[in-house]
Design a protein around this nucleic acid. Structure first.
Lengths: 343, 343
DNA sequence: CAAAAATCTTTACGCGCGTTAAGGTCTTGC
DNA sequence: GCAAGACCTTAACGCGCGTAAAGATTTTTG
C-alpha cells in the first residue's frame, strides 16, 4: 500500500495504466477483461487499496448486490441463529447482506421495509412480525422488491415462503410423548404474535382428535417478547391453581418451555422421564439454549441449515426469474425430533 | 397515494409546485423552509410517497447519517441485547443504524470494516473480536472513521471506549460470596477470546490476595463461541477429577455458568445457598437467560441501558468534535449485583 | 502473414441530488 | 406603504461511476 489516497476510479485507472471503462468493466466482472489486464489491475489494487464508491456504483443501477434480511426480534436467539446462517450464506454467494430487526414493533417494521426499498436490493428475506404486521405495507413492499418470506407465513405475500412444517413438529412430539407415557396438554400464549403458534395448536388438536384422545390447551396471559417470563409466570399460575390436568406438557415453543422449566425448578417439581419425576415437558424449535436447560429439553428441531439453504436457493431462482415467480413457491421443512432428558 | 411512481426530486418538486433546490433544502432540514412551504411539501409527500434516492444523496457527501454497529457474535444474546438497545437509540436520534456481526471470524471482521468505511458513516460502534482481531486493520479503520469501541477495549484504538468496569464486577461478586460463605474459585476458559476475561481473572487474583485468601483458578479447554458447552464439559471434567477445591464457584461469564449449572444438574448436584446444596455458583454479565437457569443465577449485571446511553453520548460529542477527540475517552460502568438463587 | 476477432482507449452522456450564485418575490416591521 | 430581510426560482456545475459508440490496438485464427 502506498502513500496518498485515491479519490476515484479515474485516478486508479491512470495509476494502473489503463482506462476507466476497462477498470469499471473489471469491477463488474473480473473475468470480463483479458488475464494480463486483470493482473495489472489486481497488482495495482494491492499497492493502492482502492474501492469504487458504493453510492456512485448503485446510483445508476436498478438492482444492487444488496440482500436484506429482516427478522422480528433479533435478541431472540432463534432468530439470531437463523439470521446468522443466512447471512453467512449470502456472503458466500457474493451478496452484501444487510440485517434488520423490527424489534417487535410494527412501525419499525414498516420503516425498515421503506428504507430497504430505497436500497434497491436484489432480494429480501423477510420474517414478518406476524399478527402485528401491517399487511398492506408488506404487500406494497413485496410488489416493489423480490421477497422471500421465512419463518412466519403470510398467505399470498412475497414470491415464496420457506419455513417449518408445524404439523410435522407437533406430530413428532405428540407421537413420541404418547408412545412413551401419558398424552400431553398443550401450553401456549393466549395471543401469540406468530401464525406458527396457531398452526401448532391446531395440529395438536387435530392429532389428538385423530388419536381419539382428549386435548387440553392451556393458554397463559402475557404480551411482548419476554416469552420465558411469560412461560414461567404462566406455569406458576397453572400449577398453583391445579389447572394442570396431565403430567405431560407440550409447550408451543422452547422459550415458553424454558420458563416452564424454571417454574418447575422453583417449585421443586422434578421434570423428566425417570423415576421420581412429577412432570414431562417437551417443546418445539430447538432453541440454541434448549440443550442447557435443567433438565435438557426434548424438542422438535428446526433444520436451521436446511431452512437457510432453501432460502438461498429460492432467492437465487427468484433473481434468475427476474424477481417474479409464475406461482408462489412454498417450502415446508419437517422437524427433527431431539430426545433429551425433559421428556 | 396516487397513480404513477415518481422518479426523482425534480418531478416531485414540480408536483408540489416548488423548485428542486427548495425541496432539497427541506429534506436536509425541514425547518429550514417557510412553514407554508413545508406544509405544501408534506401534503405532496402524503399524496405521492416520494423518497429521495439514498445513493444519490450520499454520493456527493463526505459524511452520511449512517451509523455502524459491529459486534463479534450476534447469536450471543448478550451482544444481541446490547446491539438492540444501541440500535433503538440510534433510530431515536435520527440515524440509520447498520448492524454487523463478525461471526467470530477475523477475516469477516476485516471485510465488515472495509465495507463500512465505504459507507462513510457518521460514526461506528465497534465491539471487536478481541484476541482474534487484526489490530492493524482496526487501527486503519479507526483512522478513517470516527469510532467508539465498546465491550472489549483495545488500548489506544478508536476515539473512545465504553465498557464495563470488570474490576467492579468481580469485586462485587467476590465480596458477596465471601461474606455469605466460603471464598470462590474462578472458573474460566483457558484461552478467552476477549480481554474482559483476562481483566476479570486478574481482578479476582488481586481481590483474593488483598483479602489474604488463596485464589484458585480453574481453566477449561475449548475454542469458539459455544461457551455453554465448554462450561458444561469443563464442569463435568473438573468435578469428576476432583479438581474443585471449593464449594463456591465464580464463573467468568454467565454463558460458562449456564453450562456449569447444566453439568451440576446432570450430576445431581444441588446448587444454591440453602440447606442441602452442594455448590454455590455465581457469575458475571446478567445474560438475558440467567434469570431462567436452574437455579436462577446470581450475577453481576451490565447496565445495558447505561452502556448504550453512554455510547450514544460519546458518539454525539465525537461527531460534534468533527470525529476526533483531543484525548481518548474511556468510560467504565460499574456492575450491579443481582442476587438470585444460585449463590 | 493477413484478416478476423477480441479487447482496449477515447469521448461523451446520464443518473439523482447537493450546492452555489444571481436575481425575483413574498413577509415583516416600522 | 416602503425598505429590509427572508425566502424562493432559475441556471448551472460537480460527485463517481455505468455505459454506449467509434476508433485504435492487440491477439487469435486460418
Amino acid at each position: 500500500m502506498s502513500e496518498h489516497k485515491i479519490r476515484n476510479m479515474e485516478e486508479f485507472a491512470a495509476l494502473s495504466g489503463l482506462s476507466r471503462p476497462t477498470v469499471s468493466k473489471y469491477f463488474n466482472d473480473p473475468s470480463s477483461v483479458r488475464p494480463t489486464t486483470r493482473q495489472r489491475i489486481e497488482e495495482a489494487l494491492e499497492r493502492y487499496d482502492f474501492r469504487p464508491n458504493i453510492f456512485a456504483i448503485n446510483q445508476n443501477r436498478s438492482l444492487t448486490k444488496n440482500v436484506g434480511i429482516v427478522v422480528p426480534y433479533l435478541a431472540d436467539p432463534f432468530f439470531a441463529e437463523i439470521a446468522r446462517i443466512i447471512e453467512l450464506r449470502c456472503i458466500a454467494a457474493g451478496f452484501s447482506p444487510i440485517l434488520y430487526s423490527s424489534h417487535g414493533d410494527r412501525t419499525l417494521e414498516n420503516e425498515i421495509l421503506e428504507g430497504l426499498t430505497a436500497l434497491k436490493p436484489a432480494g429480501v428475506f423477510l420474517a414478518p412480525l406476524g399478527r402485528l404486521s401491517d399487511r398492506s405495507a408488506i404487500e406494497r413492499f413485496c410488489r416493489d422488491v423480490p421477497t422471500v418470506l421465512f419463518d412466519s407465513n403470510i398467505e399470498g405475500m412475497g414470491e415464496a415462503f420457506v419455513g417449518s412444517d408445524n404439523f410435522s413438529f407437533v406430530q413428532q412430539t405428540v407421537e413420541y410423548l404418547c408412545r412413551t407415557g401419558s398424552p400431553p396438554c398443550f401450553f401456549e400464549m393466549r395471543t401469540p404474535a406468530n401464525p406458527n403458534a396457531n398452526k401448532r395448536r391446531n395440529a395438536y388438536l387435530r392429532i389428538m382428535e385423530e388419536a381419539g384422545l382428549e386435548p387440553h390447551v392451556i393458554k397463559v396471559e402475557g404480551e411482548g417478547w419476554g416469552f420465558e417470563e411469560i412461560g414461567r409466570q404462566g406455569a406458576h399460575d397453572v400449577i398453583a391453581s391445579g389447572g394442570l390436568k396431565t403430567e405431560t406438557i407440550l409447550c408451543s415453543n422452547d422459550r415458553l418451555a424454558i420458563g416452564f422449566l424454571a417454574a418447575c425448578y422453583e417449585r421443586g417439581l422434578r421434570v423428566g422421564r425417570g423415576e421420581g419425576c412429577a412432570l414431562r415437558v417437551a417443546s418445539h424449535d430447538d432453541h440454541p439454549f434448549s440443550r442447557f436447560t435443567c433438565p435438557a429439553l426434548t424438542t422438535a428441531a428446526h433444520e436451521y441449515e436446511a431452512v437457510a439453504d432453501r432460502c438461498m436457493e429460492t432467492l437465487f431462482s427468484l433473481i434468475e426469474s427476474g424477481g417474479r415467480f409464475a406461482q408462489r413457491d412454498e417450502t415446508l421443512i419437517p422437524a427433527r425430533l431431539i430426545l433429551r432428558a425433559s421428556a
